[in-house]
């Protein structure tokens, strides 16, 4: 479904993505991990064109996403994107956050949009908070509303940019549960995350990046128990025994 073909990106002189070539199938759940600055966020941000690329091609469902004449807004509306900072619109209620795009982009009637969005809020367990403002919601609740908002446009693909990194630990679980439910329902998902438990249990594949390169890829089972690339080995050991480095 998604194909990266020798994708390169530079920020000035800094080579942020180096010859990335990957393929992600429909229905796959892929976790992208790696140390800070490895380019993982940059990579998924190129998928909905929040970041431009320097060279190479990215195709989704066979279509080059950078081709001339592509309607960027229509393209983006078919991809759900979750931010680390949730980015709910603070002047709208949870329900209004969800109905905003369907009302204006899919031309639903207000009643139909409300009904659909309420169902989605229910799916993430927040129907009772439909009329709450983001300032009245906890971080975990806000991120779940953000997921409902992304689902409102019925996208075939969802991208997660460190969705739980800004959350207090006790709220991470509720968001991961929702993500797992989405995966079970067959959604194609690309997640940048540090939650290795999620990767192990839910992901079909893990991609490891460092300094803009994809260094290793494989099933979670293979990656976590038998990492091949020395940098991947270093990364995993740092995660498991964080205090050993200081010695």
């Amino acid at each position: 479904m998604i194909r990266f073909d020798k994708v390169n990106k530079w920020y000035g002189a800094y080579h942020a993505l180096v010859d990335v070539t990957e393929h992600i199938a429909k229905g796959e759940v892929v976790v992208v991990c790696g140390p800070s600055g490895s380019g993982k966020s940059t990579l998924i941000r190129t998928l909905n064109r929040l970041e431009p690329i320097g060279s190479g091609t990215i195709t989704i469902d066979g279509e080059d996403i950078h081709r001339r004449g592509l309607d960027v807004n229509a393209f983006r509306s078919r991809i759900g994107f979750l931010f680390q900072q949730f980015n709910l619109f603070p002047h709208l209620t949870a329900l209004e956050n969800c109905t905003l795009a369907p009302l204006h982009l899919r031309r639903l009637t207000p009643a139909a949009a409300r009904e659909a969005s309420l169902a989605l809020l229910d799916r993430v367990g927040l129907a009772h908070k439909a009329d709450a403002y983001p300032s009245e919601l906890s971080g975990g609740q806000q991120q779940r509303v953000a997921i409902a908002r992304a689902l409102a446009m019925e996208p075939p693909l969802m991208l997660f940019d460190e969705p739980t990194s800004a959350l207090d630990p006790e709220m991470v679980g509720e968001v991961l549960l929702v993500m797992r439910a989405l995966a079970k329902d067959g959604m194609t998902m690309v997640c940048v995350t540090h939650e290795m438990g999620f990767a192990r249990e839910v992901a079909d594949r893990v991609i490891f990046m460092d300094h803009g390169r994809v260094l290793e890829r494989g099933t979670p089972e293979a990656f976590f128990s038998r990492p091949e690339h020395p940098r991947a080995q270093q990364f995993l050991s740092d995660i498991r025994t964080p205090f050993a480095q200081a010695a």
């Binding site: 909905n48 807004n73 983006r76 078919r78 900072q85 795009a101 204006h104 982009l105």
Partner: peptide, 17 residues
């Protein structure tokens, strides 16, 4: 915050919307 703008664009809303 820039995130508001990015998020709205990610949903598919054009510049003016």
């Amino acid at each position: 915050p820039r995130g508001q703008f990015e998020c709205a664009r990610s949903l598919g809303l054009g510049y003016w919307r």
